[in-house]
Simulated assay, not measured.
Amino acid sequence: MPFADLEPAFILDAVESLGLRCDGRVLALNSYENRVYRLGMEDGPPLVAKFYRPGRWHDEAIAEEHAFALELAAAELPSVAPLAFAGSTLHHRDGHRFALFPLHGGRAPEVGDRDTLRQLGRLLARLHNVGERAAFRHRGSIGPESHGERPVAWLLEHGWLPPELEDNFAALADTLLDAIAACIERAGAVRTLRLHGDCHLGNILWRGEQAHFVDLDDCLTGPAVQDLWMLAGQGEGARRAWAWLLEGYGEFREFNLAELHLVEPLRSLRLLHHNAWIARRWQDPAFPAAFPWFAGPRHWEEVLARMQEQLAALREPPPVPA
């Protein structure tokens, strides 16, 4: 188990090895991929300790995450950047790697509100202006192979589909990937840049009428629309949400409307990638506890239904901002 030895005493010892003094309070925060804790400090406000999942990223990739967060903070973007101790933001203790962050509270933004979506659009445009200044060397890119073909192959190879659904899943996945490729072709050549990568509402904290971006653990290279589509939603109201997001975005950066052809491909890839991610982590006790329905046949029937819905969406014109 990757975090089996991550007991409170170990956590406190690791943090105090940096010269800090904890007051003994350790509160686990909501996190699956890594382990994140709020720590009380004797001489200052609480800090957040993030312990990285062993084997997921190598040190160079984590260093790029931290450097990007610090670059965003230097550009006065409201993001939560790691703290440096003895000139380093990544620390090692008995086989674990961890980083410390300031504690930022807040709530999820109200994305049905025009002013909120315009602000998020402005902030993401500024984030992308920073993102295009340089390129990642050690982090991945989002695309059909990494987020579609490989997850599908892994699920099938490791027997996650009920036997009676395997053939249907494999055939539907092939059709879905072909439709994704067709949409990408229609979009044409688009610029890629460094992105937040996982810009959903859980990674945005709203405090004092200001949004703060948190958790760059999935930062990667891809098209700008990857950081926008999850905020626009789906179905009724999405066209209006797109209009408000892009209204704000356009104040700081031009948006290539051809990237709207990528919205449903990216949604489809997230569906495939997300299911493979849970399956890959199933031996971590946090995952069966958080997703108890995942291993049942009903879930996979629902996945097939969602894949069918996505196939229909991929064949429709892209969203047009209202």
Rank of each mutant, 00 (worst) to 15 (best):
118 R>M: 08
130 V>C: 10
261 H>I: 04
240 R>W: 10
93 R>V: 08
131 G>W: 01
90 L>D: 05
24 G>E: 08
110 E>G: 09
60 E>L: 09
49 A>Y: 04
312 A>I: 14
74 A>D: 15
216 L>E: 02
274 H>C: 00
25 R>Y: 05
241 A>R: 06
148 G>F: 04
175 T>A: 14
54 P>W: 10
275 N>V: 00
143 G>I: 09
24 G>P: 02
131 G>L: 01
189 A>L: 11
315 R>Y: 03
74 A>K: 14
244 W>T: 03
124 L>W: 00
99 A>Y: 05
181 A>E: 12
161 L>A: 10
14 A>Y: 03
14 A>G: 07
22 C>I: 03
19 G>I: 06
204 I>L: 13
274 H>W: 12
215 D>W: 07
102 P>A: 13
104 H>D: 05
196 H>G: 05
120 L>W: 02
126 R>K: 11
225 V>Y: 00
289 A>Y: 02
176 L>M: 13
272 L>F: 01
194 R>D: 05
211 A>R: 02
101 F>V: 08
236 E>R: 13
307 M>G: 09
19 G>P: 05
202 G>M: 08
6 L>R: 03
4 A>C: 12
308 Q>A: 14
51 F>A: 06
131 G>H: 01
226 Q>A: 11
245 L>W: 04
109 P>S: 11
171 A>P: 03
7 E>Y: 07
235 G>F: 11
219 C>L: 07
129 N>L: 07
310 Q>G: 11
62 I>D: 00
164 E>V: 08
49 A>I: 08
61 A>V: 05
317 P>G: 10
107 R>A: 15
161 L>K: 06
225 V>A: 01
316 E>I: 06
129 N>W: 00
292 P>G: 01
128 H>P: 01
173 A>H: 02
313 A>Y: 06
91 H>R: 09
294 F>L: 01
118 R>S: 03
115 D>K: 12
63 A>D: 08
165 L>S: 09
84 A>F: 06
307 M>I: 14
273 H>L: 08
112 G>K: 12
100 L>M: 11
155 L>V: 04
65 E>T: 09
150 R>A: 12
314 L>Y: 05
247 E>D: 15
289 A>Q: 11
307 M>W: 14
47 L>C: 09
224 A>H: 03
81 A>W: 03
35 R>Q: 11
254 E>H: 09
77 L>Y: 06
84 A>E: 14
132 E>Y: 00
101 F>N: 04
30 N>E: 07
300 W>D: 02
4 A>E: 15
140 G>C: 04
9 A>C: 04
241 A>C: 09
293 W>G: 01
118 R>K: 03
177 L>E: 06
158 H>R: 15
220 L>S: 02
309 E>N: 13
11 I>L: 13
134 A>M: 03
3 F>W: 11
277 W>C: 03
244 W>G: 02
